[in-house]
Design a protein around this nucleic acid. Structure first.
Lengths: 149, 149
DNA sequence: CGAACTATTACGTCGCGTAATTGTAA
DNA sequence: CTTACAATTACGCGACGTAATAGTTC
């Protein structure tokens, strides 16, 4: 069973007590936020979008290992440029078939291809702008030098 | 004077007649939309944001060469990830370039220095992301190949 | 007449941020 | 009492998309 350095608040305590009772490792919202560097707002938002559905104990959100793994998938999919609505679809085919893994791989390849293309185009535009700005900068410096004479 | 293949609608006709009367090349909203592959909604939106301010003839927007050049700058700035509010500043830099006074020159130099720095950092981040995405992409392809055997 | 433009107004989208307010446990 | 979490509701943002409605010219 995982054990963190500091207890932090009510949810944490609740979580700790449940750890003693159950074999399942359980997380409070703050735990996942800290681990994945996201805000509580983000997790609640994902919940309204049906991406996560943690149990409630006394009104507090309680996440299991599987919720945590799901969140990891969500964030990875987001990092490669997926919309949340797409991610829902993606997670569905993850749970369904034994073929799911190969489908996942194809999905990742497709998404990264698209994002790589986007970034390359962006970089090309940035380089154009850099050249122009440098020209403006240098000619302005030259003009200012001439003025001083 | 530039001449397009097809006349399209009322604004177009108005534009054509003005081309005969004036030396200035003039565009209707549809012309610019087609040329830059953006929607009319986009140009109207930019107008509400103060990025463009075409004349009106009989209620219709009429764009000059300079409006067109400005739009080109806007779209490139946008393509490199600038917010529209930033782009307004950006355009001021281009506008004051070439005008005489020393204070303006110093301002332009200072601003372009800042913008060049920003763009260089942006480019560095893009390259980081590109490397990561390429690694993910390649390892996924490799895994998929292994699966097929 | 319809087709093809144009106009304005205004609500919808996406991924949260940011209060504002309230509750609970230590 | 404070502090440190938790909860919900709801408006804000950025860059438009998308009607809905209406006017014009051919």
């Amino acid at each position: 069973v995982k054990r963190n350095s500091q207890a932090r608040g009510a949810a944490r305590e609740l979580v700790e007590s449940l750890r003693d009772e159950r074999a399942d490792v359980i997380f409070g919202i703050g735990d996942l936020c800290e681990e994945f560097r996201v805000s509580p707002r983000t997790l609640r938002f994902y919940e309204t979008k049906g991406l996560l559905s943690p149990r409630r104990i006394n009104g507090l959100r309680v996440y299991t290992r599987r919720d945590r793994a799901r969140l990891a998938l969500i964030l990875r999919a987001k990092a490669i440029g997926s919309k949340l609505s797409e991610i829902n679809h993606y997670l569905d085919l993850y749970g369904s078939h034994g073929e799911g893994r190969s489908q996942q791989l194809r999905y990742v390849i497709e998404r990264t291809d698209v994002e790589i293309g986007k970034l390359e185009r962006k970089r090309a535009n940035i380089e154009k702008s850099l050249q122009e700005l440098r020209m403006i900068n240098q000619s302005s410096r030259r003009l200012l030098e001439e003025r001083r004479q």
